[in-house]
């Protein structure tokens, strides 16, 4: 079975020879950057570099996907936000939004030519390049933010969170406006060649807002967004999701992806055998800071708890030790075989 078949079959709940090890989020490594002499800050604005780095994690370690882009600013940028790429900085920094474009209660103006704005054409090109480089052997993924998380990018987060309580109708109006642009972007990425799309709604775990608010404000627009995406989808949420997994599952994605705070065995019990659950390795504490033995143990635990795919709970931090990446893949091969 090719890595792509393994990943796609998992998302479609079909048979696989073993559990895949992949991600719905960024997974570039410093090892890849060094091999190709590419600087992280410049890769965000260069399709060829982006694709090269995304594919390098498969080439170097056998990680079973290539995912672009690497940052969380693409949609907000296309909607008009200015992005800081931290060019020339020595340390690796992820791009952030410099300027907010909206206040709660204001009307969002979605540009007519949204799909031609910002780096959307560049990400599409990078997806096509990944597709060419991997020759159908390895799955190509891309992602969009969930409506609530995107709202947190284009609005002041304090304003959004307080308004969620004080003026829920204004927030609902905004979130409902964000669905269509997000769906359009996701489908454009799919048409460019992305085999699967992850929807990252990391701004709404129960570390931040109550499950009640999640149900009222977040879930309806997540459902709508996912329903509009033509590719197989993964719904990812980091933070504490134990109280939310049923609601996440109801959103209708092919799979849900959770991080280490989720008790996967309990989630499996709640959702049943039909649910596709991905996760739940600690992307920093274990994959970057742990020993290869700890990585192996973590993989074993995740598989025993019942994940259908081994996935880091967040983007892989580029400074991941190479030995840990090798240990990750090896452990999945060792413990993930289906008899």
């Amino acid at each position: 079975m090719t890595p792509k078949e393994r990943v796609m079959n998992t998302l479609e709940k079909k048979e696989v020879d073993r559990v895949p090890v992949f991600s719905g989020m960024g997974n570039v490594t410093v090892a890849g950057m060094q091999k190709y002499g590419i600087d992280f800050a410049s890769s965000h604005a260069n399709a060829e570099q982006m694709a090269t780095l995304a594919c390098s994690t498969y080439e170097l370690f056998g990680f079973e996907c290539a995912v672009v882009p690497f940052d969380l600013c693409v949609e907000a940028e296309a909607l008009g936000c200015e992005v800081n790429f931290y060019a020339g900085k020595q340390n690796i920094l992820y791009p952030t939004i410099k300027s907010k474009i909206l206040k709660v209660g204001e009307e969002l103006q979605v540009p007519e030519n949204l799909l031609e704005r910002g780096r959307i054409p560049l990400v599409k090109e990078a997806i096509s390049l990944c597709k060419e480089k991997l020759n159908g052997e390895v799955a190509v993924g891309s992602y969009i933010l969930g409506p609530f998380t995107l709202a947190g990018q284009i609005l002041d987060l304090n304003d959004l969170l307080k308004s969620s309580f004080k003026k829920p109708n204004d927030v609902k109006a905004l979130l409902s406006q964000l669905v269509e642009p997000l769906v359009d972007i996701a489908n454009a990425f799919h048409e460019a060649g992305a085999d699967y799309i992850t929807v990252r709604e990391m701004g709404a775990p129960s570390d931040v807002i109550s499950p009640r608010m999640f149900k009222m404000l977040v879930q309806p627009y997540l459902k709508e967004t996912i329903a509009g995406i033509k590719a197989p989808t993964i719904l990812h949420m980091c933070g504490d999701t134990n109280m939310l997994v049923e609601m996440l599952y109801e959103c209708g994605a092919n799979a849900i992806s959770v991080e280490q705070k989720n008790d996967v065995a309990a989630t499996r019990q709640k959702l049943g055998e039909e649910a596709v659950i991905l996760g739940n390795l600690d992307a920093y504490g274990v994959i970057v800071k742990g020993t290869p033995e700890e990585v192996e143990q973590s993989v074993k635990q995740a598989i025993e708890a019942g994940v259908d795919g081994v996935m880091p709970g967040c983007d892989i931090w580029p400074e991941v030790p190479e030995d840990n990446m090798h240990a990750l893949i090896k452990a999945v091969e060792k413990y993930g075989a289906k008899s």
Binding site: L161, K162, S164, F165, K166, S206, V208, I209, S210, M213
Partner: peptide, 14 residues
């Protein structure tokens, strides 16, 4: 105790 979440805390701070 998970009775209050971030929005509530922000409003209390205000």
């Amino acid at each position: 105790k998970n009775e209050y979440f971030v929005p509530e805390v922000l409003m209390c701070a205000d």
